[in-house]
Protein backbone atom coordinates (compact mmCIF):
# COMPACT_ATOMS: atom_id res chain seq x y z
CA UNK A 1 0.00 0.00 0.00
CA UNK A 2 1.36 3.48 -0.87
CA UNK A 3 1.45 4.72 2.72
CA UNK A 4 2.80 8.17 1.99
CA UNK A 5 0.38 8.94 -0.84
CA UNK A 6 -2.57 7.73 1.20
CA UNK A 7 -1.51 9.87 4.14
CA UNK A 8 -1.16 12.92 1.88
CA UNK A 9 -4.59 12.25 0.39
CA UNK A 10 -6.07 12.14 3.88
CA UNK A 11 -4.30 15.36 4.87
CA UNK A 12 -5.74 17.02 1.79
CA UNK A 13 -9.24 15.99 2.86
CA UNK A 14 -8.55 17.25 6.36
CA UNK A 15 -7.35 20.55 4.96
CA UNK A 16 -10.56 20.91 2.96
CA UNK A 17 -12.53 20.42 6.16
CA UNK A 18 -10.41 23.00 7.94
CA UNK A 19 -10.90 25.55 5.16
CA UNK A 20 -14.64 24.89 5.11
CA UNK A 21 -14.81 25.65 8.84
CA UNK A 22 -13.06 29.04 8.54
CA UNK A 23 -15.94 31.30 7.37
CA UNK A 24 -18.27 30.10 10.12
CA UNK A 25 -15.45 30.40 12.63
CA UNK A 26 -14.83 34.05 11.73
CA UNK A 27 -18.55 34.82 11.99
CA UNK A 28 -19.06 33.08 15.31
CA UNK A 29 -15.86 34.12 17.06
CA UNK A 30 -16.43 37.79 16.25
CA UNK A 31 -20.08 37.59 17.30
CA UNK A 32 -19.14 35.74 20.49
CA UNK A 33 -16.47 38.30 21.36
CA UNK A 34 -18.93 41.15 20.82
CA UNK A 35 -21.61 39.42 22.88
CA UNK A 36 -19.21 38.97 25.75
CA UNK A 37 -17.80 42.49 25.62
CA UNK A 38 -21.25 44.08 25.38
CA UNK A 39 -22.31 42.37 28.60
CA UNK A 40 -25.12 40.46 26.92
CA UNK A 41 -23.77 37.03 27.88
CA UNK A 42 -23.43 37.85 31.54
CA UNK A 43 -26.91 39.39 31.52
CA UNK A 44 -28.42 36.27 29.96
CA UNK A 45 -26.50 34.04 32.33
CA UNK A 46 -27.70 36.11 35.28
CA UNK A 47 -31.24 35.80 34.00
CA UNK A 48 -31.09 32.05 33.59
CA UNK A 49 -28.87 31.25 36.52
CA UNK A 50 -31.71 30.72 39.05
CA UNK A 51 -33.02 27.87 36.89
CA UNK A 52 -29.69 26.41 35.84
CA UNK A 53 -28.14 26.81 39.30
CA UNK A 54 -31.02 24.83 40.74
CA UNK A 55 -29.85 21.82 38.73
CA UNK A 56 -26.19 22.76 38.99
CA UNK A 57 -26.05 23.19 35.22
CA UNK A 58 -23.30 25.62 34.12
CA UNK A 59 -25.06 28.44 32.24
CA UNK A 60 -21.85 29.09 30.30
CA UNK A 61 -22.57 26.03 28.15
CA UNK A 62 -26.14 27.09 27.37
CA UNK A 63 -25.40 29.08 24.16
CA UNK A 64 -23.51 26.08 22.79
CA UNK A 65 -26.40 23.74 23.59
CA UNK A 66 -28.69 26.01 21.58
CA UNK A 67 -26.42 26.40 18.52
CA UNK A 68 -25.26 22.77 18.37
CA UNK A 69 -28.25 21.18 16.57
CA UNK A 70 -28.37 24.01 14.02
CA UNK A 71 -24.88 24.62 12.75
CA UNK A 72 -21.75 22.48 12.68
CA UNK A 73 -19.30 25.28 11.91
CA UNK A 74 -21.05 27.59 14.36
CA UNK A 75 -20.89 25.10 17.20
CA UNK A 76 -17.21 24.36 16.53
CA UNK A 77 -16.51 28.09 16.66
CA UNK A 78 -18.43 28.49 19.89
CA UNK A 79 -16.82 25.38 21.37
CA UNK A 80 -13.37 26.78 20.57
CA UNK A 81 -14.35 30.04 22.21
CA UNK A 82 -15.65 28.23 25.32
CA UNK A 83 -12.54 26.08 25.65
CA UNK A 84 -10.28 29.11 25.20
CA UNK A 85 -12.19 31.26 27.68
CA UNK A 86 -12.53 28.76 30.52
CA UNK A 87 -9.31 26.76 30.01
CA UNK A 88 -8.90 23.43 28.23
CA UNK A 89 -8.90 21.36 31.42
CA UNK A 90 -11.84 23.08 33.14
CA UNK A 91 -15.05 21.22 33.87
CA UNK A 92 -16.96 23.61 31.63
CA UNK A 93 -14.66 22.98 28.67
CA UNK A 94 -14.85 19.22 29.15
CA UNK A 95 -18.60 19.29 29.44
CA UNK A 96 -18.82 21.40 26.27
CA UNK A 97 -16.57 18.94 24.43
CA UNK A 98 -18.51 15.84 25.50
CA UNK A 99 -21.75 17.59 24.59
CA UNK A 100 -20.52 18.52 21.11
CA UNK A 101 -19.10 15.08 20.47
CA UNK A 102 -22.18 13.13 21.50
CA UNK A 103 -24.71 15.27 19.64
CA UNK A 104 -24.98 16.18 15.98
CA UNK A 105 -26.18 19.02 13.76
CA UNK A 106 -29.57 17.35 14.01
CA UNK A 107 -31.75 19.65 11.90
CA UNK A 108 -29.17 20.06 9.18
CA UNK A 109 -28.63 16.29 8.97
CA UNK A 110 -32.34 15.51 8.73
CA UNK A 111 -32.73 18.14 6.03
CA UNK A 112 -29.87 16.80 3.93
CA UNK A 113 -30.77 13.13 4.34
CA UNK A 114 -34.41 13.48 3.36
CA UNK A 115 -33.89 16.06 0.63
CA UNK A 116 -33.69 13.53 -2.21
CA UNK A 117 -36.57 11.36 -0.97
CA UNK A 118 -40.29 11.87 -1.36
CA UNK A 119 -40.79 11.98 2.43
CA UNK A 120 -42.83 14.92 3.74
CA UNK A 121 -43.41 14.06 7.38
CA UNK A 122 -40.38 13.93 9.64
CA UNK A 123 -41.98 14.67 13.00
CA UNK A 124 -41.15 11.25 14.45
CA UNK A 125 -37.54 11.50 13.32
CA UNK A 126 -37.13 14.99 14.74
CA UNK A 127 -38.74 14.08 18.06
CA UNK A 128 -36.53 11.03 18.51
CA UNK A 129 -33.39 12.86 17.39
CA UNK A 130 -34.00 15.85 19.66
CA UNK A 131 -34.68 13.50 22.55
CA UNK A 132 -31.33 11.84 21.84
CA UNK A 133 -29.61 15.24 21.85
CA UNK A 134 -31.20 16.17 25.17
CA UNK A 135 -30.01 12.90 26.67
CA UNK A 136 -26.55 13.66 25.24
CA UNK A 137 -26.50 17.07 26.94
CA UNK A 138 -27.61 15.48 30.20
CA UNK A 139 -24.92 12.80 29.88
CA UNK A 140 -22.25 15.42 29.22
CA UNK A 141 -23.40 17.28 32.32
CA UNK A 142 -23.37 14.17 34.53
CA UNK A 143 -20.09 12.77 33.20
CA UNK A 144 -18.17 16.03 33.54
CA UNK A 145 -19.52 16.30 37.07
CA UNK A 146 -18.69 12.80 38.24
CA UNK A 147 -15.12 12.76 36.98
CA UNK A 148 -13.89 16.19 37.92
Amino acid sequence: MPCYQTFIEGVEEGLKTVVSILPALVAILSAAAMLRQSGAISAICDLLSPVTDFFGFPSEVLPLAIIRPLSGGGSIGLLTDTVKTYGADSTIARMACIMCASTETTFYTIMVYFRKTKVKYTKRVILAAVFGDLVGILCAFCLSKINF
Binding site: G10, G14, I28
Partner: peptide
Protein backbone atom coordinates in the same frame (compact mmCIF):
# COMPACT_ATOMS: atom_id res chain seq x y z
CA UNK B 1 -8.55 38.05 14.04
CA UNK B 2 -8.28 35.29 16.61
CA UNK B 3 -10.34 32.92 14.44
CA UNK B 4 -7.37 32.51 12.09
CA UNK B 5 -5.01 31.79 14.98
CA UNK B 6 -7.44 29.27 16.43
CA UNK B 7 -7.93 27.56 13.10
CA UNK B 8 -4.20 27.37 12.36
CA UNK B 9 -3.52 25.97 15.80
CA UNK B 10 -5.72 22.96 15.25
CA UNK B 11 -5.41 22.67 11.47
CA UNK B 12 -2.20 20.66 11.71
CA UNK B 13 -3.64 18.18 14.19
CA UNK B 14 -6.79 17.71 12.13
CA UNK B 15 -4.83 17.18 8.91
CA UNK B 16 -2.56 14.68 10.62
CA UNK B 17 -5.47 12.59 11.90
CA UNK B 18 -7.28 12.71 8.59
CA UNK B 19 -4.13 11.28 7.02
CA UNK B 20 -3.91 8.48 9.61
CA UNK B 21 -7.61 7.68 9.22
CA UNK B 22 -7.21 7.53 5.46
CA UNK B 23 -4.49 4.93 5.90
Amino acid sequence: ASSIEVLLSFAGIMCFWSGILKI
